[in-house]
Nucleic acid binder design. Sequence first.
DNA 1: ATCCAGGACAGTG
DNA 2: CACTGTCATGGA
Length: 310
Amino acid sequence: MDCASGKKQGGCAPDRSHQRAGREGESFETLVVPRGEPFSLEHTLLSGQTFRWRKDDGGFVGVVSGNVLWLEQRRNRLLYRSLPGKVDPSELRTYLGLDAASNQALRSLPGDPVLGAAMRNFAGMRVLRQDPWETLVSFIISSNNNIVRIKRCIESLCRTFGHEIRGALGCYAFPSPAALAEASPDCLQQLCNLGYRHTYVRETAREVARSPGLLSDIARLSYLHARTELMRLPGVGPKVADCVLLYSMGKYEAFPVDTWVRKVMQRTYFKDQRVPDSAIRSFAADHFGPFAGYAQLYLFHSAREVWNRR
DNA sequence: ATCCAGGACAGTG
DNA sequence: CACTGTCATGGA
């Protein structure tokens, strides 16, 4: 593929006539969030666990499993529509973390001062269940990188190597493992600005393309076994593996330790002392329990928000 | 200019 | 196992 001609400009520009029609009322589906199941669409989609959602006229637009998906929350009602395929309600609930385990997680986490404050500030934030392949590549790219640039890299990857979604000009699906396995290093590094991570993405794509069932097999393993297997992939260390396990495989005991979480944890629970990440993870397992990952999401998002307000 | 960003990795002690 | 320097890139 020619890098120069592969660059596609312009933002995601879904057909507005459909959208307007939807807002008139005939093509939006409705999902009711039951009472007693705290849910915030905005907190969930802007929490940093996913990178392709953006605000759109009161709601959000994203790409999920090859479909453009519009979402808007009105109290306990969730309005949604998708193109070109249909997303069914149970699939959507699963994606958004509206499941029994997540409800249990939100009830069972300890209410210590720091976590308690984060859970009140971002009430209803949930751990998504995203596509493992997209999550894997996204967090390989995230290493030693900042969020603004991570989003640009991923969007660039999709525009260059993903297929354009029918009926939604400028919206691209996340590229398949085969597409990234065959991508030229120059395209990945220069066009998509992956930097030194381009070999990680390419080599991991080769592995996954070579054995298509790999990620779904890993998802069925126990947390520790799955973690070990993920870390065999190039560019995947403890932190990236935990992100994939938590944000795409429903392993709520995973507790990704990044720079932000490390800071909060050391300040709050280790008297501001430097401790190895392994100590942080084992403390989290003891203190937060089997849903420690939920605590991680709240602590991470909370720490970043506080910092961004300064 | 210098430091840092959702780290991983190879090399030392 | 714990610690260190390095990696490509861009924003602050």
